[in-house]
Every structure is written in structure tokens, then in C-alpha cells.
């Protein structure tokens, strides 16, 4: 059993230490909002926060998380009221939606370090793949959440 702090709760997880955090979240804890897309840290669908930093859970071993506080999409709010979630709804960002948990987690992490990000900061932070092509709306939603006039 390995201790794991997720969304403010301490869990005891029955998984091999080299199991990627992604699959611990999904299969052991049932937190399926975090998605599998590539398994090699390319697409960002599995983006979660550890101690506020965005990480790719598909290549983060359970053992490497240690005492780190993990936050997943389910931990942002109970009622879709995080300002980034509200901005995502207002701009009608998602299409298929599969990558959006990761997009939102990346955007939340960005706004924590850069509350009024420049376009260059947004582009550097948003490295998540979206096959539906929602990038333009992702940018608008980040502006909206940051209170930036487009």
C-alpha cells in the first residue's frame, strides 16, 4: 500500500510503485476525468497538478509522487465554478472534450503563476494536443478567465 494525496484526501493505494500516476488515478481511485492519450508525455490529456505544477501523469510513476499533493480535474471545484471552468463554458470550448481536462489543468497552472499571461506565456504553457482544433477558443477562455480583453 502506498500513500497518495489526491484532491485533498489521503488514499492508500494498492499498486506497484512503477505504475504511472495516470492509471492509479483512473483504475484505483476511479478518477477518470484524467485521460490517456499517448502514454509518452506528448499530448497532455493526462495533465494533473503536483504541488501546483502541471505534470503529465502518464509518465509520472506512483513512487515519484511521494508526499506531493495531486490535484485532478475533479478537484478544481464541486460545481464547475472554478473561473477557468466557467470561462470554458462561456466560450463553449470543448468539442469532443477528451483533451479538455488536460487543457483546463494546464490553463489553471498557467494562471496561478501568471495571472495576466502574455500570448507568449500562453503559447509556452499550452502544449496540449487537441484533435478537434479548439485552440482558438482555449485562448479566448484563458483571456476571459484572466480578465484580459481580446
Amino acid at each position: 500500500m502506498i500513500d497518495l494525496k489526491v484532491n485533498g484526501k489521503l488514499h492508500q493505494v494498492d499498486a506497484a510503485p512503477d505504475t504511472p500516476l495516470l492509471w492509479v488515478l483512473r483504475d484505483n481511485l476511479g478518477l477518470t476525468g484524467t485521460k490517456y492519450g499517448c502514454g509518452i508525455a506528448q499530448c497532455g490529456a493526462c495533465t494533473v497538478h503536483i504541488n501546483g505544477q502541471p505534470v503529465r501523469a502518464c509518465v509520472t510513476k506512483l513512487a515519484a509522487v511521494g508526499n506531493g499533493a495531486v490535484v485532478t480535474i475533479e478537484g478544481l471545484s464541486n460545481d464547475k465554478s472554478h473561473k477557468v471552468q466557467e470561462a470554458w463554458i462561456a466560450e463553449q470550448v470543448p468539442q469532443c472534450g477528451y483533451c479538455q481536462s488536460g487543457q483546463i489543468m494546464a490553463a489553471v497552472a498557467l494562471l496561478q503563476t501568471a495571472p495576466k499571461p502574455t500570448d507568449a506565456q500562453i503559447e509556452a504553457a499550452m502544449t496540449n494536443i487537441c484533435r478537434c482544433g479548439t485552440y482558438q477558443r482555449v485562448r479566448k477562455a484563458i483571456y476571459r478567465a484572466a480578465g484580459i480583453k481580446a
Binding site: R26, T32, I73, E74, K80, W88, V93, P94, Q100
Partner: peptide, 21 residues
């Protein structure tokens, strides 16, 4: 009008085939 499927796609609650339990 706002799309019906959008709210479930901002908090991880939308269930894709991958997420079935």
C-alpha cells in the same frame, strides 16, 4: 444556445468509452 454536452466536459464527468466502470 449553450451545448448540452459542454458542462460535463469541463469537470471530468463526461463518460467516454474509456471511462466506463
Amino acid at each position: 444556445p449553450p451545448r448540452f454536452d459542454v458542462p460535463a466536459k469541463v469537470d471530468g464527468s463526461a463518460v467516454f468509452g474509456m471511462d466506463v466502470k
